[in-house]
Nucleic acid binder design. Structure first.
Lengths: 215, 215
DNA sequence: ACGTAACCTTACTCGCCAGTAAGGCTGGGG
DNA sequence: CCCCAGCCTTACTGGCGAGTAAGGTTACGT
């Protein structure tokens, strides 16, 4: 788009352009249906360049995956700093997440909606990135437990809560698509509202009991 | 496996066998990487039979999708009957869901972990099945609102709660894989515990407020 | 000025797999 | 007993797309 039609771009720049294009195409078509030719074209380049710089289709996908996973994790970590109280850390983390998804929808699609791909390497990398996020949230929850006065709970519980939170946030990602007006702040607020009290219940070992006898 | 090697199986039976095989293979490989040949082999048959009965690879996938979506929805509906109180309905529904996933893991993988497939028809069908589940849950939540004494809440809230619940349950599906011993009953209990109070908060319009000033 | 490394292209090969043509079995109804 | 409807097979075609061979072109350092 610049005035000078920049041919002959240096490698590091071109690599990022290729990854940018890859994310767009992978998000739209999925790993298998995406063709390297189409990605090359989006990057304003021909196919052999992709192979020269990124080795293979799988290598390209992995590079894209890693870059975006890194981005998301960085944003989350930067937001949920230990300076805040547990509640505010969680709130900030959720807000950062919803904001990221809003602003980088394609990245999110590639990051999350691509399971059951053939290559073990890809499956592994996908799992790794999700685990990293889960670990971060689990850490948050555990910190909250440590700060609270209740008895030490088994790790299982922190993990359980983390899975619930991440899954809920993930699904609300779809809800956002249905309500384009809704700002991330409102979604975060509602989710906090819904989840905060119950979290304390689980972590304090309080048990929900069936209000009348079971059938 | 039976004593008589049953060649020449009647069509309706064979169709179900093909769909059974398809679910196993699609779950393992994903839509694109799965080959019709492999599915045919799993069904103890040759490829043209698949095309004769199910038309195309896409038709086969759609048939599998529809059958399993139907199953899951039926199980959920049967459990969450209106006879119970809202809480017990939700509990029963969640329990049915977790039980289904435990017993039909492949079906669940095909049903949920297959987005961003090329064909619009498949994307549409996948979305339809998820929407059906969400609609069911939203209905439950709405029924709960109606039963409660609070002011009429906008529909948005019921939908929001439903997305949260479905997403949480979905993600806990992964948690189950990590904790094979855990029975569906315990998972359901914990999730109810975590979510029930907060649900009331959201539906009653109570607002979580930041405990100290925001950064 | 000019060589060379880095950038980039056209024009292939080759294997895989969806889909099909052409016809062989077999068993139940007349 | 015999025939035909419905079950099933082997053996193809055709195209798509990952990966590559072979070489052309620019710009930067000296």
């Amino acid at each position: 788009m610049s005035d000078i039609r920049r041919r002959r771009v240096p490698r590091p720049v071109r690599e990022q352009q290729i990854i940018d294009a890859a994310i767009r195409v992978f998000a739209r078509r999925g790993y298998h249906a995406a063709s390297v030719d189409e990605i090359a074209e989006h990057a304003g380049i021909s196919k052999p360049m992709v192979y020269l710089y990124l080795d293979s289709k799988e290598g390209l996908f992995l590079a894209a995956l890693r870059r975006e996973a890194e981005r998301l994790l960085a944003v989350f970590r930067a937001a949920a700093v230990p300076a805040h109280s547990p509640e505010l850390r969680l709130r900030a983390g959720l807000l950062a997440f919803f904001t990221f998804v809003t602003e980088h929808r394609d990245s999110w699609v590639v990051l999350h909606r691509q399971s059951s791909e053939p290559s073990p390497a890809i499956t592994a990398e996908l799992a790794r990135s999700r685990r990293a996020l889960l670990a971060e949230v689990t850490g948050l929850v555990r910190a909250d437990i440590a700060a609270s006065d209740g008895p030490a709970r088994p790790d299982d519980d922190a993990e359980f809560v983390a899975y619930t939170l991440v899954g809920a946030a993930d699904s609300l990602t779809d809800w956002m698509a249905l309500h384009p007006g809704e700002p991330p702040e409102r979604i975060t607020l509602r989710l906090m509202n819904m989840v905060w009290v119950g979290m304390r219940n689980v972590l304090d070992g309080e048990v929900w009991t069936t209000p009348s006898q079971l059938p």
